[in-house]
Design a protein around this nucleic acid. Structure first.
Lengths: 83, 83
DNA sequence: ATTTTTGTTCGTAGTTTTACGAACAGTATG
DNA sequence: CATACTGTTCGTAAAACTACGAACAAAAAT
């Protein structure tokens, strides 16, 4: 629970999750266009979301398609709701 | 949104919010009894929750009664739900 | 008035987070 | 094969987080 909250505790990561919740999938490039941060920084945030289990990446060469991890996202929402 | 999530991104603060959601109010002493941390550390966590707007403290000398800030908590829950 | 109770603030230390650019790796394209 | 595209990893630096004990503040109890 704290792990999920912590992963969401940054504006960039909220932005990413918000986008993914609206369009289910996206590429890093979509995000770098809209966010004023270096691609290496974005990569770190995506890594954190991935390690928290909130998203998953699928190789679609030469890009990577990121999607919400629906199971874990559902669990996180349930945890917040039941709180 | 990120502010609320960040405030919840620590096990101790989750514990506090969980307790408060069950019994609406509590004193610091209740928490120090149950948590293996120094009272100064707890005080810092409570301060963070307070600054994030999730709880509020009311002096009830010589103690302080902490309660959930219902308005902000409701807002936070709505934000998570609508996500 | 002194002591006790409750909790905050201060100073400190170690760890983690956030951010950047440079260098690297893998795949696609010319 | 060489080049371009996409993204990760590495090294670094500044800031924030976490935790502790000691010192402090305010009110209650003795």
């Amino acid at each position: 629970m704290a792990r999920y909250a912590k992963a969401l505790g940054h504006p960039v990561r909220i932005f990413v999750m918000d986008l993914l919740s609206k369009q289910s999938c996206c590429y890093s490039g979509d995000l770098t266009d809209e966010l004023p941060i270096a691609k290496s920084t974005l990569s770190q945030h995506l890594k954190e979301l991935k390690e928290a289990g909130l998203i998953q990446g699928e190789i679609e060469a030469p890009r990577i398609k990121y999607c919400i991890n629906k199971d874990n996202w559902a669990e996180a929402q349930k945890l917040f709701k039941d709180f």
